[in-house]
Design a protein around this nucleic acid. Structure first.
Lengths: 226, 226
DNA sequence: CTAAATTTGTCCGTATGTATT
DNA sequence: AAATACATACGGACAAATTTA
């Protein structure tokens, strides 16, 4: 049913993107250094140039690489949070907003969750567990938080939560997300995800709120601080 | 400098998307109606199927069309922008949502409030004090809560708070508000408003949160109960 | 300064997979 | 069971920008 290694059903481009993500984050090329040409990479990984380019498109959106016509493709220089104080939908503002909303949101969800809600959460947990690339992980991560909002069975809360989700999509995360995407960090995130769902399942309101708060603080810390 | 009308430097896909947008919006195909197949369209517009598909990708993201494997491509049923479910929200849901958001919001505002923010709050207090009718009172009441959101100096929080304010506007309150508009009730509300601003002024985080919570619970109680 | 080589950007035509009718 | 139609991938060609000779 569910293959834990699951790289089968993803598209070739998505799978290749996950591979390249790992290569970039593990220092395969140095910061600011030039990657091989598209033709060389497509040959090396055994895919068509079109397919490779879709993978690069994803990496570019994550801010992991930069591409220049006539020059080549380069690994982005790791720039720290940079210019954070001035907010116009800064990552810091979004995280702060999540911190004041989501712990209370999940606390409300605890008192309302139905078996169907729990099933939806479990599905999201499987998604985050099996995710290969950062893109896929984030998809299921967002779905899980939406599942918590759904479990409040409150249309106003859901509307507000989704409004925040849309704001998140318009935020310039730069490399902040990718920087934290190490096996160790992702392991911690998954533990927290499981702990939150477990707290909801056991109707432990305080634990759910506490775990959510710790979860968001953890993300904050490795994004901003290091 | 980007000229939005300029179809010269745009890619073939982007130009075609603009043409198809016009065709869709001008009623070239009926709502829910089926468009020609991708092969037929690419032939008609003289582009490769790949190119046509990129144009359709854009239209799909805009919600103008829906695509189904094996069935075809269809013009979406008329829903101008970003079809959100505008169900009539229950007053109970809105109050519950305010209860989980606003106490944390004002707690954050306490740590950020500037003299200008306080001046704005004082102006709103005068408004509620002097208000004659219910309409005027509600205007300044909403303005005060918006002032708290502004005082967080967090764009994401402000955006979310205003999203909730818009939800409140399309809520069917029936006579719930009018029922509670007695001199006695309004006196209590004003006391609470003053207490909240005072707590913010004195940077008393816990008291601000507590007062806000009591404020919302009070409104809930006389709307729902009694 | 010019011309050629390199590299990414865009588009095309075709083949195969998968879901629906 | 077969035809239809979208989804994905491949390889090739040319254009545009940059670097190099």
């Amino acid at each position: 049913m569910v293959d834990p290694v699951k790289t089968e059903d993803a598209t070739a481009a998505a799978r290749l993107q996950a591979v390249l993500e790992q290569a970039l984050l593990s220092g395969q090329w140095e910061e600011g250094g030039k990657l091989p040409t598209e033709r060389a990479l497509s040959l090396e990984y055994g895919v068509a140039r079109n397919t490779l380019r879709r993978a690069l498109d994803g990496l570019e959106r994550l801010g992991l690489i930069e591409r220049h016509v006539g020059r080549g493709t380069f690994r982005s220089a790791a720039r720290p949070p940079a210019a954070m104080e001035e907010e116009a939908l800064s990552p810091a503002a979004v995280m702060e907003c999540r911190l004041i909303l989501e712990p209370e949101l999940i606390a409300l969800a605890v008192t309302r969750t139905t078996p169907a809600d729990l099933a939806r959460m479990d599905e999201c947990l499987r998604g985050t567990d099996d995710a290969s690339g950062l893109l896929e992980f984030e998809h299921w991560d967002a779905a899980l938080h939406d599942a918590f909002a759904l479990a409040t069975h409150n249309a106003a809360v859901l509307s507000m939560s989704r409004s925040l989700a849309r704001v998140r999509e318009r935020t310039d995360w730069g490399q902040l997300k990718a920087r934290g995407d190490t096996p160790r960090h992702r392991g911690t995130l998954q533990e927290q995800h499981h702990a939150m769902v477990e707290a909801v399942r056991r109707r432990d309101r305080d634990r759910a709120r506490q775990t959510m708060r710790a979860h968001i603080l953890f993300i904050q810390s490795y994004m901003m601080g290091e």
